[in-house]
Amino acid sequence: MAEPRNILITGGTDGIGLKLAYTYANGGNNVVVTGRRSAEDVKGLLAVNITYIKADQAAPDEAANAIIRALAKLGWHHCDLAILNAGNGKAGDPLAENSRDLINRIDVNLTAPILISHALEELLMASANSKLVLIGSTSHRGASNFASYAASKAGLNGFARSLREEWRGRVNVQIIHPGPIATNMHDKAGFDPGIIKRIFLNPDFVARTIIRKIKKGRSPTSISFAARIIDYLTLRNWFSS
C-alpha cells in the first residue's frame, strides 16, 4: 500500500468536501478538514480518523493562520494534497446584493483560498509530489443569477492559471470547475432550480470524478453533464460499489 498522505480539505463538513474527506480517510490517509462551525457542532459528522480545524473564511487572514497553527500542532512538516473547496453562494438579482454580501462572497470564496494557498506554501514545497487543488465552478464564465459567486470563481480561475505556471515543477496547481451539483448548497443559496435539479450532478459522481481528475492533474478542467454521460458510457459506476 502507498504511504499515507497528509491531505487538507477546506469546507469538509458538508457536500463534496465531506465525501472527499471520507474517501481519502478510508484510503488510509491523514485527513484534516476545516469548517466554520465549532468542533462540538461537527462531532457527529466526521469519522474518528478525520481531524477538524475551525477556520471561518469570512476572516481570510485569521482562517489561514488558524489552519497553519493547527497543522503545526498536529506535527505536519509537509502537505501532499490541499483541496480548497470551501465556498458559499446566494442567488438573486445582482443589483440587490448589498455590500455585506459582496464582501463576504469575495472574502470566503476568493481571498481566503488565496491566503490559505499562500500560508501553505512551505508545507506544499516540503512534499516531493504535492498538489494544490482549487474547486471553482462552471459559472466562472459569468452567471446572471449568481453574479458575485461567478466573480469569485472567475478570480480563482485566474489565480490558478497564473500560479500553475509560477509553481510548475514544484507544486501541481489545478482548478476543477464542477457544474451544478445536487447538494444542499442551492437550498442554502435560496435558489430553487425546479425541474432542472434532475440533471444536476450527483455528489458521489462529482467526488469520484474530482479524485480521478486530481490524479490526472490537468488544469483547468470542468465536470459537466457531458462528463456524467461519459461516466455512464465507460461503465465505471456499473462495476464499482
Binding site: I106, G142, A154, G155, G158, F159
Partner: peptide, 22 residues
C-alpha cells in the same frame, strides 16, 4: 494569465466575470 502577478490576475478575472454577470 500573468505569472508573477497571480492575485492581480485573479482580481481582474473576477471583475470581468462580474461585469458580464450583471
Amino acid at each position: 494569465g500573468y505569472p508573477g502577478a497571480s492575485v492581480y490576475c485573479a482580481s481582474k478575472d473576477a471583475i470581468s466575470a462580474y461585469a458580464k454577470s450583471i
